[in-house]
Write a protein that binds this DNA or RNA. Structure first.
Length: 315
DNA sequence: CGGGTTTGACCTGCGC
DNA sequence: GCGCAGGTCAAACCCG
């Protein structure tokens, strides 16, 4: 993983809430119980950190994604707020980002500059400008496929990219885990599958989806956890530039387009990751033992831009 | 027939 | 430079 692939912890809704949340500190309140174990923590407790009625755990994934129901309540309950995009960029230069992206990529090299949220299923994002690179790459590919054998053109194109030092950037990513038998959870948007790849060390393939809306570059990857097959790991990349088709006629239609699913009550919070997950840095940190608290002491300083992936309990 | 899925090939970046 | 793994493309195929 290169420095290009820096990634930041960010809240799934950072862009949507850029006006709500500043960049000052991590706003996300974890359960104060340091021994918090998402797998033993009762569902009701998770659902009711502030005494919210747990019947909402039945809310649909879609409705929750679009922020109806008690999102506001929940965000308040967990003191959720979001990052400004500026903040995201700022963090891109931090030394800890390398591993974050590795985590997002489910690669396995979290040894130095560990993610700030060891053992947490965190949301990852990176703000690399992948567009330029992608387009040039595509151009090269197009040239190739059109039978253009002009090596100079190819070379110059490549040189141009490298010469300019334009680092490949990716859209902010947010990953979250969902307990579900269904891989592709309904999130209100329409997706077109464009690829599937076998994942190393996992019997489950990873599927690649792209938003079907024109000019919307949002992508998502869906894979199932090897260690916990009931858990689906969904990674969103990019931000929708349109409203969700599913909400156009609903009350949520008035909401701004969301880049990522909103936090739902029935999402478990970070630190919910299985230990020693084969996909590694998504969840684990080598310096943190399972016995250790999975919540670092000073989140506000350690997670200035972080949010997590959430474990969604389908009941 | 249009839109989505499948799947093999290809590209890219990284580590050794 | 090479091999590996992730990511993407696009032709072929499927389905309503």
């Amino acid at each position: 993983m290169s420095d290009e692939d820096k990634i930041n912890y960010s809240h799934p809704y950072d862009r949507d809430h850029r006006n709500v949340m500043g960049s000052e500190g991590f706003p996300f309140s974890f359960p104060t119980d340091l021994n918090f174990d998402p797998f033993t923590y009762s569902h009701h407790q998770l659902q009711n950190p502030t005494g919210l009625d747990h019947h909402h755990s039945q809310m649909s994934f879609t409705s929750f994604l679009h922020g109806d129901a008690e999102y506001n309540t929940l965000s308040a309950a967990f003191d959720l707020s979001c990052l400004s995009s500026e903040a995201v960029h700022a963090v891109n230069n931090s030394s800890s980002n390398k591993n974050l992206l590795e985590a997002a990529g489910t690669t396995n090299s979290a040894s130095e500059n560990p993610p700030a949220t060891p053992n947490s299923s965190v949301s990852f994002s990176s703000s690399e400008a992948v567009i330029e690179e992608d387009s040039s790459s595509k151009n090269r590919r197009d040239l190739q496929r059109k039978g253009c054998e002009d090596g100079d053109v190819m070379k110059s194109t490549k040189l141009k990219v490298k010469k300019k030092g334009e680092k490949k950037q990716r859209e902010p990513r947010v990953a979250f885990m969902t307990k579900s038998d269904v891989d592709n959870l309904e999130d209100g948007y329409r997706w077109r599958k464009y690829g599937q790849k076998a994942v190393k060390n996992s019997p489950f393939p990873r599927s690649y989806y792209r938003c079907t809306s024109q000019k919307c570059n949002v992508k998502k990857r869906i894979e199932r956890s090897f260690q916990d097959p009931s858990t689906v790991i969904t990674t969103y990349e990019g931000q929708h530039n349109h409203h969700s088709p599913a909400t156009l006629r609903g009350s949520a239609a008035m909401l701004p387009p969301l880049p990522f699913p909103r936090l739902a009550q029935n999402f478990l919070f970070p630190n919910t990751c299985p230990q020693n997950h084969p996909n590694s840095s998504y969840y684990s940190h080598p310096n943190i033992s399972p016995e250790q608290p999975q919540i670092l002491p000073d989140q506000s300083s350690l997670f200035p831009n972080m949010v997590s992936s959430f474990l969604h309990k389908h009941i």
